[in-house]
């Protein structure tokens, strides 16, 4: 044996396992989920998501403190309404983080590297949407979980109803995350410059919210309550609120679509948004893969 050759072992071929499509898709999911919170990236990429996640928690913590100290269980926030109250924070999170997942790899021409490997186009899009949905779900579900646990600890009455409402709240969080994730990725994928992407997502989410609530006020003054309820389907937060109220036993929002049918209509709109976004994102990434 020649000892001096031990240092440079030269090139070694890889003889080990090569895993399949499920593993690759899971890896894309994990990579994008980490990216959504700036993990694996410089510290400044972590600031925004974690600050926003912290802000999301503050009202819940404060509310629990009020319930505990003032002994007023009725002061506990309704679970399904929490995301509606904090929609500004959620919108900012969507706006700043959607470009990280959707437009970063298009802008830097990284997409072709995926498709020159055994990565399936649709898998990439679905994994990205799933990752962003999960990131948003964590952002919205953790505060209401804090509310629920806080309610248990401070012995808010009717723990059975509370549990049902909490589960309904979780479903509402999931639905909102899915809808916002789809809209956010869609808008960001067509605005390759990050700054524009942030602005475009903010515009779509906030402007639609403000516009719709203004028009809703006007129609309510004119006495068109039903029309006002239907208008709520035009902005993601009221849309999900309608589903939560009509189908998930959530708390009554200011105004909502009439009846269970309206709830299903709202759910249908959610499905169309998500499916449409997947189709468009699919063709967008397919095209980016050839550049």
């Amino acid at each position: 044996m020649n000892v001096s050759t031990i240092h440079d072992i030269g090139y070694r071929h890889y003889e080990g396992k090569r895993l399949g499509r499920a593993y690759v898709t899971r890896s894309i999911f994990v990579h994008n989920l980490r990216a959504a919170y700036g993990l694996g990236r410089p510290a400044r990429a972590k600031v925004m998501p974690f600050v926003l996640a912290g802000i999301m928690l503050l009202p819940a913590v404060g509310d629990i403190a009020v319930v505990a100290i003032a002994k007023r269980p009725e002061a506990l926030f309704p679970y399904t309404r929490y995301q509606f109250m904090l929609q500004l924070i959620i919108s900012i999170f969507v706006a700043t983080q959607a470009p990280v997942l959707a437009s970063r790899e298009i802008r830097f021409h990284t997409v072709p590297l995926y498709f020159s490997r055994p990565v399936v186009h649709l898998d990439l899009v679905l994994a990205k949407l799933a990752a962003f949905t999960t990131a948003l779900f964590a952002l919205t579900a953790i505060p209401i979980t804090v509310l629920y646990v806080g309610g248990l600890v401070t012995q808010v009455p009717d723990s059975g109803t509370q549990l049902l409402h909490y589960l309904g709240g979780l479903l509402a969080c999931l639905l909102l995350s899915l809808v916002l994730g789809a809209i956010g990725l869609l808008v960001a994928a067509f605005t390759p410059r990050r700054g524009f992407g942030v602005a475009a997502v903010i515009a779509v989410l906030l402007v639609s919210s403000v516009l719709v609530s203004v028009v809703q006020e006007i129609t309510q003054h004119a006495g068109h309550w039903t029309l006002s309820g239907w208008l709520g389907l035009l902005t993601p937060y009221s849309l999900v609120d309608a589903v939560a109220y009509r189908l998930l036993g959530g708390k009554l929002p200011d105004i909502a679509v009439p009846g269970v049918g309206g709830g299903f209509a709202a759910l249908g709109v959610c499905a169309v948004i998500v499916a449409g976004a997947v189709v468009v994102l699919y063709s967008r990434f397919r095209k980016a893969g050839l550049s």
Binding site: K17, R18, L19, V24, R41, P112, L113, Y114, S116
Partner: peptide, 28 residues
């Protein structure tokens, strides 16, 4: 495949990026 154009995201390290690309080929 090594493309002609720039294809690297600037905000990750080479290690992080190449590991990710290895996983995209199915390496555990």
């Amino acid at each position: 495949f090594m493309p002609e154009y720039e294809c690297l995201p600037p905000d990750v390290s080479a290690t992080e990026f190449v590991v990710h690309m290895a996983r995209m080929c199915g390496l555990p």
